[in-house]
Design a protein around this nucleic acid. Sequence first.
DNA 1: ACGCTACCAATCGTCCTACATTCCGACATC
DNA 2: GATGTCGGAATGTAGGACGATTGGTAGCGT
Lengths: 232, 232
Amino acid sequence: MTAHIPSAAPEFGAARATARPTSLTEWSVRELRTLLAEGAYPPGSRLSEEELCTRLQVSRNTLREALRILTHERLLIHEHNRGVYVRRPSAEELADLYRVRRLIEPSAIREFDGTPSRLNRVVAAVAEGEAARGADGRALGTANVHFHLAVTALAGSARADELVLRVLTELRLVFHVMPDLDDFHRRFLVRNREILALLERGPQAKPDAAEALTRYLHDAEAELLSRYRSLP
Amino acid sequence: MTAHIPSAAPEFGAARATARPTSLTEWSVRELRTLLAEGAYPPGSRLSEEELCTRLQVSRNTLREALRILTHERLLIHEHNRGVYVRRPSAEELADLYRVRRLIEPSAIREFDGTPSRLNRVVAAVAEGEAARGADGRALGTANVHFHLAVTALAGSARADELVLRVLTELRLVFHVMPDLDDFHRRFLVRNREILALLERGPQAKPDAAEALTRYLHDAEAELLSRYRSLP
DNA sequence: ACGCTACCAATCGTCCTACATTCCGACATC
DNA sequence: GATGTCGGAATGTAGGACGATTGGTAGCGT
């Protein structure tokens, strides 16, 4: 399942306190990414360089290199002379996130060449989701992420995989400011399975699967947007 | 230590000397990106921190932050304890670049909502290309980049635009190690115009346009790959 | 009281120095 | 000629210094 997750993988649900690898900077990046994914710093909060230095036990130089990378991944925003903040995507950006997903994910289905191992990954992701049906929002969200990563991986493009991973990670920031998403995630489990069923039907059903996914993404966007706009 | 006096910067070669903006790191990133796009450092060459520091007149810290960003953009690769090198995409990566493009660009056409200003941008790009017909490879390549950016922009997604820009920038690295691409670029000018013609025919021709673009990208990939594999 | 100004503390941006670690090539050894 | 060792060179990381910017606050004038 951890097939070819690119270097910038925010290990979903991974254990913390990883051993320090060869590069302290990369380690810091992973560490921070995990912290952000877990919501340790909610969107909008300011990250003090000094505080993070002591927290991660790295020098300011090293930390700043890590922050640059995370800023480049859009998880943080950098305000000159003011510091870095956890990104809080605007409604327009939320819409854009879904726009990209609609560009890529259905396309990935259309480009699927039938490689069984790739389809199996989708199967596994759907199973994971249904196993997590009773779990909390995080487990459901993670399962959903795996589903969409698996669908993207149908295209067999490492760059596409990474892009979607980034987009989904960014989406997590949105989720962190929205309450009660358990049900939201749960409802899409059914549609995951439906799309899988279409995929399993073979190449001639690919357009249907792609279209179902497009609708799926439209619906998800609409629901999130309407709830997002009615937030404090 | 007249640290940041913007005007007086004894620059090398051409008067590149972009005004130093608020952030030296960002300035360095842009500067380096330009140098890479221009082929000042051919793919595979090693970038010495010290040399770049003196060339850009920035400290090692600042430079390293810039290098991190460019590495994250895949323009450089970072080998631990060995330094950063200008990336030299492998044949497999070249294929992947086209894979992503085939995922996104045709999709962008399908998602085009008819906004005239967006179509106009494609028109302008095609015109630019034909105006550059007699020019050298660089001008042709740039016009082609503009065409594909304009096509991508049909979808109206900032993230998709950025992704394609990155991919095309990465492709430039490939071009830098391939000789005689003038003709390659020139031949695609015709197909740019054909795709534009389909786009102008209205929504019902979108699938045709998308498919034409897909073939276009397949052909370009095939030609580049075959030539790329027969390189030293 | 209210608004404006000047000052102050906290941080960031950038540079510098230092040093351990690692890598690589040169030289010596067998 | 293969292997081992040494030293130079560059990177990785730490830490300190200091100007610049920002946000807040105390104080002033009206």
